[in-house]
């Protein structure tokens, strides 16, 4: 289970250069939590997640929207990509930081949040 979450993050991070990205990473994370929910019950999955899913959605949307602002401040259109330095990582190769990565993180959170939220809601509905 933690492995799947970790893997989803790797997918997210390497998404800019290889298959992966926010959508896929978020879906993988959601699948992992859903699996946990089916195996141990929804309350357990909720506890595992710690934060309520709507929180994830909100945070993700906020991050994605905020990542568009730096470009705006530089006098360029909203959501223009700006890149900073980079650090080497073990699994994902050279990791570069920039607003698109931040945006991708937002997407990741939103997608994961939505999928988990939907499944929780549906599963708890009797």
């Amino acid at each position: 289970m933690p492995l799947q979450l970790a893997f989803s993050i790797v997918l997210l991070v390497r998404g800019h250069n290889e298959p992966g990205g926010g959508f896929i990473g978020g879906l993988v994370a959601a699948c992992g939590i859903a699996l946990h929910g089916i195996a141990f019950g929804i309350p357990a999955a909720r506890r595992l997640l710690r934060v309520p899913p709507p929180m994830l959605i909100g945070t993700g949307l906020l991050i994605a929207a905020l990542s568009g602002l730096p470009g705006l401040f530089q006098g360029q259109p909203f959501l223009t990509g700006l890149w900073g330095g980079s650090v080497p990582t073990l699994l994902a190769g050279q990791l570069k930081f920039g607003t698109p990565l931040l945006f991708d993180v937002g997407v990741y959170l939103v997608v994961a949040g939505i999928a988990v939220h939907l499944i929780f809601t549906m599963a708890e509905d009797q």
Partner: peptide, 20 residues
């Protein structure tokens, strides 16, 4: 298509809930 897939997921979830 990637966005379309994810969107249709949301849509299906919504119609399921609506039907339910």
């Amino acid at each position: 298509i990637l966005t379309a897939i994810v969107i249709s997921f949301g849509m299906i979830a919504f119609t399921l809930a609506l039907t339910r």
